[in-house]
């Protein structure tokens, strides 16, 4: 974008000219409160539900050696015999200090925060890398498909989108790992210091979001191309390329802002597959591990982090939408997107 265009966008970014700062702040505040409330509710529900789990998950490998009385003493010491409200209160107090409890079966007595903080970097790196890659590939693909609507490229792209959206990710991830590694002699497992081994996990993770970006971009472009102002511009003699880039693309980009957080959510689930397939030491692989070992406290910690990530993603998405699209109505109570 040129300097001139950026200057043009500035007022809408600041949210100043169109409805004033106060409404914007009010909206942000309301939305933030909503997110915090949601997070609070989720944490409470997750915590209460996990108390319904069988208690072996807290005893770990020592369970067989203990007599029932010993088990009872152990569980009481852990605070699991207290009323749920007390447990919940203690949990929130700990949470405020950044303490998520200790692992039981995964790495015994290691704090959950330590386990997760070792892993979170990889997940974020891969997630954001995949989103970036899919933006770089998906958006131009969608534009090209809209441009060549009905021709072979459009059909090929549509086939790709249908395949990726319809077939469960696990299936094509496995096939990519199985055949592409043979084909290009790529390493099958992730190795931090071998940059070649980053290629496959990143590209497979980007396949899904690429398809959805291309799909939305194409749809909005086609919608936009059918509008009257485009016909007028054509009639005026605006060049096809200027038309595409200056008029259609800008308007088609606006609703895309909404899907960015959704794809970040998607990369979280995607990473569960990819991380365990390529043994990347990230949070997704960890989740699979601890679920299979029934380590309740780590599951709880991970679920909290995943849902917070999701909520932050949606919050930012709504914010981006409010800033980018001047037509959106803010502050109307009870409105649904």
């Amino acid at each position: 974008m040129t300097k001139d265009q950026l200057w043009h966008l500035l007022p809408s970014f600041l949210g100043v000219k169109r409805w004033g700062v106060r409404i914007m702040l009010w909206y942000i505040g309301k939305r933030l409160l909503q997110s915090v409330l949601t997070l609070f509710i989720i944490i409470t529900i997750v915590f209460s539900l996990l108390r319904l789990m069988p208690e072996e998950g807290y005893l770990g490998s020592a369970a067989e050696k203990m007599s029932p009385e010993q088990q009872e003493v152990y569980l009481t010491n852990l605070g699991l015999r207290d009323p749920l409200i007390v447990q919940l209160g203690n949990f929130y107090l700990d949470l405020l200090h950044g303490d998520l409890g200790t692992s039981v079966t995964y790495r015994t007595d290691v704090p959950v925060t330590t386990i997760i903080s070792d892993k979170i970097g990889y997940s974020l790196l891969f997630g954001l890398g995949a989103v970036a890659l899919s933006l770089i590939v998906g958006v131009p693909l969608g534009i090209l498909m809209a441009h060549m609507k009905g021709r072979w490229l459009d059909r090929l792209g549509t086939g790709y989108i249908v395949f990726v959206v319809a077939v469960p990710a696990a299936v094509y991830y496995i096939f990519i790992q199985m055949y592409v590694t043979d084909l290009f002699k790529l390493p099958m497992l992730f190795d931090e210091y071998n940059s070649v081994s980053w290629i496959l996990p990143l590209t497979s993770m980007a396949l899904g979001p690429t398809a959805s970006y291309a799909m939305w971009m194409r749809r909005y472009m086609v919608d936009e191309l059918n509008k009257d102002y485009i016909k007028l511009a054509r009639a005026k003699g605006v060049k096809e390329r200027t038309l595409m880039f200056k008029h259609v693309m800008r308007n088609a980009f606006i609703p895309m802002a909404q899907y960015l957080p959704a794809t970040i959510l998607f990369t979280i689930t995607g990473s569960i597959y990819i991380e365990s397939l390529y043994s990347i030491p990230g949070m997704g692989g960890l989740l699979v591990d601890v679920i299979q070992r029934q380590d309740n406290s780590v599951v709880q910690g991970l679920v909290l982090i995943f849902s917070s990530l999701g909520i932050i993603g949606l919050f930012l998405g709504d914010l981006a939408m409010a800033i980018v699209d001047p037509r959106i109505k803010l502050g109307k109570g009870g409105s649904v997107r």
């Binding site: 909503q34 989720i42 689930t269 995943f306």
Partner: peptide, 21 residues
Amino acid sequence: QVYNIVENIPTTIVLILMSYI
């Protein structure tokens, strides 16, 4: 109001949690 809260919860998480429990 309920929807605005429920919509914020990632589907995958609910799926995992429910089947875990």
